[in-house]
Amino acid sequence: MDPVLDIRGLTVAFGRGATAVPALFGVDLTVQRGEIVALVGESGSGKSLTGFAVTGLLPSGAQVTGGAVRLSGTDLRGLSPAAMRQARGRRVAMVFQDPMMTLNPVLRVETQMGDALRAHQDISRRAARPRLVQALADVGIADPAARLRAWPHELSGGMRQRVAIATALLHGPDVVIADEPTTALDVTIQGQIIALAQGLCRDRGTALVWITHDLAVVAGIADRVAVMYAGRIVEDGPVDAVLDAPAHPYTRALIDSVPASHAKGTRLPTIPGRMPGLSDMPPGCPFAPRCAHAAPACTQAPPPVVQTADGRAVRCLTPLVPVAERGAA
């Protein structure tokens, strides 16, 4: 079966021409129908940018410079702005990080959800109402009819995020991109929202790309995990395999720096240095300067993608797990 989302060699740059600064360096990511994929990385690794590139909502100044983004077989890059708008909300939807900022402060919940519904359906405001009430009930909002008339500031953060999820799922999109939707929430609410999103997507066969920097979340929600570093996906594989035996030194270091995974009383390992900025990207592997396993060759050229013996993709010359025989894949 065709993957629902297929990103191939996606490159994005800020600015144009000679002064353009690349931000994504050939991102490959495939999401199957109904699959939940976690996209993990530090701030600035390009994970949100990848999400925005898929929905055609890149910040001003940034543009896609190469590669392809296929949504259920259609190349989004070839679409006109009008066709792209048609795809947004209906085939791909997004949920954002800060629920306090996601809803328009001066419009009622009903207006915002109604506009999202009417964007793709010729339906009167009155006729839309029961649909919206049902959508709110589906995301576990008590007294949905009253909440529909509420202003955003009258709702709690968790409730707003539920409204955002309900809105994103209105048209039953093929894939939902959730950009750190629980980062700004209390821990107890985080769990509820994660369970909710997971449950809804499983029930409806909606694929979910969950962008996060929190490995604890990854373990709880995802089927697969893709680790991003400095505008590249450095490791991509099933969540258990990646978390148990990371292939890329960066993934290893990331897991090790989670406090909970560490024995009490010993010093918490940290990754020395910081991620290179967009304008001072080294010629070789961007992680090489911070990497404990770096070989001289690592600083020469960006490492190619290699397959590990258990079928993961890793962008490293010195992976931590056995690689597949050359040509065997």
């Binding site: 929905t55 909502l57 708008r85 048609q86 795809a87 947004r88 909300g89 209906r90 939807a93 997004m94 954002f96 990080q97 800060d98 900022m101 996601t102 809803l103 328009n104 402060p105 419009l107 915002q112 506009d115 999202a116 964007a119 793709h120 955002a164 809105t167 994103a168 209105l170 048209h171």
Partner: peptide, 21 residues
């Protein structure tokens, strides 16, 4: 702002996004 981006992400038409939201 995020709420304009969210409205666009839901496919709301530009005239409505600019003219009202």
């Amino acid at each position: 702002s995020d709420y304009i981006r969210f409205a666009r992400a839901n496919g709301v038409r530009e005239t409505r996004v600019i003219g009202w939201h």
